[in-house]
């Protein structure tokens, strides 16, 4: 994969999302415009309840916006049927979650190879690639362990390997360090950064972990369902003082 600075891998246009809770309406997103370039390492920062996770779900085509449009690789997600949407989630996007979300009844290697099974690869191909991916995240010798036999950090590594299964253009990480201790969290952040450099994958992570800032190319600050400000890395040094 190569870097194409002019290519927009994700584009959001006036996206809103309203949740109905009984008679109450909660506006989680109030019109978000955002463009993300290929190969970027982008962090979405904001306090909990700011609409961060909702935005994450919109970018990942996991939920439908109430209004506005989401483009992934310049394809309008709303125009896709169920089969195309499943293909998009399978091939274009890799997901990493705060709670790891590995399939508890499957071993590490089965978890990593599942997206490749869905993609229609044959057994030899996916087993070989699955082992390669586990090697990359440093868990090759634990391929036969179930998630319950792995530590949090190890589970997140398996999840990272799984997210890369079909060589996606985008890896979406929702609070990837949220359930991990400080050092393990740093290791995971380092691993993600390394993968984005080596593979040219666009990494988008929703987080409120300040450690993420050091590795991000751009940081999107979200507050109350709107984009508060977007900062490039070179300008970031100054504002870190504000955060801490």
């Amino acid at each position: 994969m190569y870097r194409d600075e002019t290519h927009n891998v994700v584009r959001l246009s006036e996206v809103t999302k309203v949740f109905r809770m009984g008679t109450n309406k909660v506006e989680a997103l109030k019109g978000v415009d955002l463009t993300i370039k290929t190969g970027e390492y982008l962090s979405i920062m904001g306090p909990s309840g700011s609409g961060k996770s909702t935005l994450f779900n919109m970018i990942g085509a996991l939920d439908k916006p109430t209004s506005g449009r989401v483009f992934i690789d310049e394809v309008d997600v709303a125009q896709l049927d169920a089969y195309e949407l499943a293909w998009l989630r399978c091939r274009k996007i890799g997901y990493i979650f705060q709670t790891f979300n590995l399939i508890q009844v499957m071993t590490a290697i089965e978890n990593v190879t599942l997206p490749m099974v869905f993609a229609g690869m044959n057994r030899d191909e996916y087993t070989e690639k699955g082992m390669d991916l586990l090697k990359i995240v440093g868990l090759a010798e634990r391929y036969h362990h179930k998630p319950s036999e792995l530590s949090g950090g190890q589970q997140q590594r398996v999840a990272i390997a799984r997210s890369l299964a079909n060589d996606p253009a985008i890896v979406l990480a929702d609070e990837p360090t949220g359930n991990l201790d400080l050092t393990t969290g740093e290791e995971i952040i380092f691993l993600l950064k390394q993968l984005s450099k080596e593979r040219g994958v666009t990494i988008i992570s929703a987080t409120h972990d300040v450690k993420m800032l050091n590795v991000s190319d751009r940081v999107v600050w979200i507050r109350d369902g709107r984009i508060d400000r977007i900062e490039d890395r070179d300008k970031l040094k100054i504002s870190i003082g504000e955060v801490a």
């Binding site: 994969m1 194409d4 290519h7 290929t38 690789d73 310049e74 394809v75 896709l80 089969y83 195309e84 499943a86 293909w87 998009l88 399978c90 091939r91 274009k92 009844v105 499957m106 089965e110 099974v117 869905f118 993609a119 229609g120 253009a169």
Partner: peptide, 24 residues
Amino acid sequence: MKTSVERQVVLPWNQVVRISFNSI
């Protein structure tokens, strides 16, 4: 990079049988 979106393949029954059997 391809910008078109393809259709997801439908898994053959033998795969579904294998996955569901392991799951149960």
